[in-house]
Amino acid sequence: MICHGQEDGEHAHCTLAEEAEHAVGVSAFECYQCGKCTAGCPLAAEMDWSPHQILRLLQYAAPELEEQALRSLSIWLCLTCEQCVTRCPQEIDLPRLMEYLRQQSLERGLMHPQGRDILAFHEAFLDSVRKHGRLQEVGLVANYKLKTGHLLQDVLVAPRLLARGKLKLLPQGIKGKAAVRRIFERLQHDEGKEE
């Protein structure tokens, strides 16, 4: 990988945009700031930096601006609905880049406080799949509540679901659940700990 400053014989310093390009093959530099991603993004209105601004933060290649991107709420709100990449004239895979930025944000301990519930949901979801091989919805909700402390959220929903036969109370693991657990172990995705 050719990094910023390398050609001058200086100590190689990779910018976040370069690292992302190397890791996931998405180049922030191809963006010319037309704003089409932001116009179509369902959650742009709730974001602190809109999608095209996240790309702009990376383009400056300045550590303090890169940190802004990693500290943003935006990267956690991305729904991966794919509207942005579908309409992007440069075909920049922004959802894939957002995924990379979330992982970097976690690794560097820069997660936005409002990202906590969203992360807790993803973790509770994967905990369930690691244990049983399939998602057990009751366990997911219970685990999410414990992780976030939102104990009373949706308490009125559960009885209605139960009455309609939509809740399975006992987990039914698959035969291959040990094999699924080994997949998690190999890819170093342990409980409560990210890569």
């Binding site: 992982q103 993803h122 979801f125 799949v129 035969k175 291959g176 094999a179 890819l187």
Partner: peptide, 25 residues
């Protein structure tokens, strides 16, 4: 037979290889 969860947006959000391995199984 004996299918597992695809990992959905949770794996997709946190661990790219896991997001490939679960559907791959």
């Amino acid at each position: 037979p004996d299918w597992n969860c695809c990992g959905a947006s949770a794996a997709h959000s946190l661990n790219h290889k896991l997001a490939l391995a679960l559907p791959a199984r």
